[in-house]
Design a protein around this nucleic acid. Structure first.
Lengths: 343, 343
DNA sequence: ATGAAAGCGCTAACAC
DNA sequence: GTGTTAGCGCTTTCAT
């Protein structure tokens, strides 16, 4: 059992031809005779030849790897986006390298660095919550490497991005609550610097005003939107004398926390308080009652991001104009917000 | 804004020294003068130098990348293992490349191939459900690349692996049900060829026998253990006249399906039927009632896998004896199985 | 403390 | 249809 790896030279020697011919034969070059190709194939097999992508990458100046950076891969939203990216990437001979930042800014910066060193051909990223400085992304762009942001994005940054219409999602969610008869709708949000949360807040607000309700700042609760935060936010709201009759949360876990607290305190969902969350995570469909939510079409988002990458890589040095793709979110109505039967 | 990437030669030219000196200076070689190092650092900065890992990898014969293959990254179990691997890997200058197979055998084989071509320094993998032929893993080993299996493993395969004691986990779960007064305990299992399910079945059986209960094959239900499967299995069991008073499921989603059906049909959990699942996925803690489960310590599993990798890489050509690490699982008792108050 | 030179494995422009 | 040659960017042995 030899550990020595066979190279194209070994194949060449064996067949009394040159390495270039072997190289061409292996890539099915049109000007190589069929029999040479066949012989090369066979010899490669026999020698247990494994192409060395690293050498090819060095030579070609491209690695055929797309780097993906996400806060965490264990949220269905992110893993679905990744899947959407892979779907497109793989059919174009690209592999993906997934990196997690755990929402840590330092790790995000060092990950970008690592991917750059690894000479990935492009980077697709959803940045962390802490991220306020985007120089590390600009650096990628300046190097001529396509970088595409998804989900969380930043309009001041001149890079391509694919997002959903967060405003619209929030608008739909809020309007739905109004239609279900809610009069005092609270909103759970996160750091308002992050544009997705800013947009959702705006959608919430507009929907209220457009439907003849007042926007009441005191019904907007800031938190980190995790399960515990949702619980705390709800508990806070329940201390008021004018408790809300509806909650629209900018996250899936936040609204779950709210529901837990409501049930513990004897409130009925959706009769006393109707709930809508964000992100169609699987668990939202099997809570009791199941949670209404906004689906962000993560697979499509991944597809779109990968397609932008392919376009950017195609234009090469010619200046690529950053493009923005905005997907339409979908309101998924489940029990947690359904007071009236649909007519 | 030049796209031309600076190399060590550019730095060398600028400082009137040679590339070798620059190379050494950049890696803090002891025999390079402090001032040269400083000058190189500065020039590198100014030229916007980005090391080319690909070139280094080609030269060194190592990429400093560990390939990770999982069926899917969106299960907390897998993403936690990945996190555990990264924790160790990063402190040793390794990056990880995560690949998903979606439990598809073809994709698994091609992914191994892709990682081999990418010249990763090692592969850590949990194989898919369909996988019965392990030649693609053996090939890795024959190439002298460390390969470590985790979670799902195969004893006939002479490669390192880190698993939990599935037998023990199942034993604990079943015994716990017995202690809670269950007399007819059903078991949800999957393809019995996969050793983890075989072991869990064995643990279930032993626990029954050791506690004076009979093992009744008709109470063992085979399925794919997804939510729907759990529902079907439970419905099937409820058609019997001697319905079970406890269920131990080899998965988290399977037991969730069972609970849904039980509640829909008016059975009380845990009073009528007590439930225990497997895999401490977050959602199991917020179902109603919360689900008892077996925690597999995924972070530790990842740590262990990465440590084995480091050991294997260290011994180099000397034959490395595959090692097996068996972690102890932990029974997490929640409402779904708690009939008696603990004394 | 630094330089010269060779080579990792592959590809492609340029021969013929 | 195949060979020759040069080089991608880095590391490292052997010099001095």
């Amino acid at each position: 059992m030899k550990k020595e790896k066979a190279t194209i030279h070994d194949i060449a020697r064996k067949l009394n031809i040159t390495a270039s011919t072997v190289s061409r034969a292996l890539k099915d070059h049109p000007r190589i005779s069929a029999e040479t190709k066949k012989a090369v194939q066979k010899a490669a097999q026999k020698l247990n030849y494994q192409p060395n992508n690293i050498a090819a990458a060095l030579r070609n100046g491209k690695s055929n790897i797309i780097g993906i950076i996400v806060p965490t891969a264990d949220r269905t939203f992110f893993s679905s986006v990744v899947r959407g990216i892979e779907e497109i990437a793989n059919t174009h001979k690209y592999n993906v390298m997934i990196c997690q930042t755990y929402d840590n800014y330092e790790k995000e910066v060092s990950t970008v660095e690592a991917l750059l060193n690894a000479r990935v051909d492009g980077i697709i990223v959803s940045h962390g919550k802490e991220t306020q400085n985007f120089d590390h992304f600009l650096k990628v762009k300046e190097r001529g490497i396509p970088i595409i942001l998804f989900d969380r994005s930043n309009d001041e940054l001149e890079v391509s991005n694919v997002v959903i219409d967060d405003f619209l999602g929030a608008y739909k969610a809020t309007e739905h609550l109004v239609q279900q008869g809610c009069k005092r709708i609270a909103h759970f949000t996160n750091a308002r610097k992050i544009s997705i949360f800013k947009e959702r807040l705006r959608g919430y607000r507009e929907a209220l005003l457009d439907n003849g309700l007042k926007f009441d700042e005191s019904l907007v609760v800031d938190s980190n939107l995790q399960l515990e935060d949702g619980r705390n936010s709800m508990e806070q709201l329940l201390k008021r004398k004018d408790i809300p009759d509806g909650v629209f949360s900018s996250s899936a876990y936040g609204v779950l926390g709210a529901m837990q607290v409501l049930k513990e305190k004897g409130f009925k969902v959706p009769e006393d308080v109707a709930l809508v969350g964000f992100s169609n995570e699987p668990f939202t469909s099997f809570t009791e009652p199941p949670l209404s939510t906004i689906d962000q079409h993560p697979m499509r988002m991944g597809n779109a991001a990968a397609e932008i990458f392919l376009e950017e890589i195609a234009v090469k040095d010619k200046k690529f104009i950053p493009q923005k793709i905005v997907l339409k979110p979908e309101l998924i109505i489940r029990q947690s917000s359904l007071r009236k039967k649909p007519n």
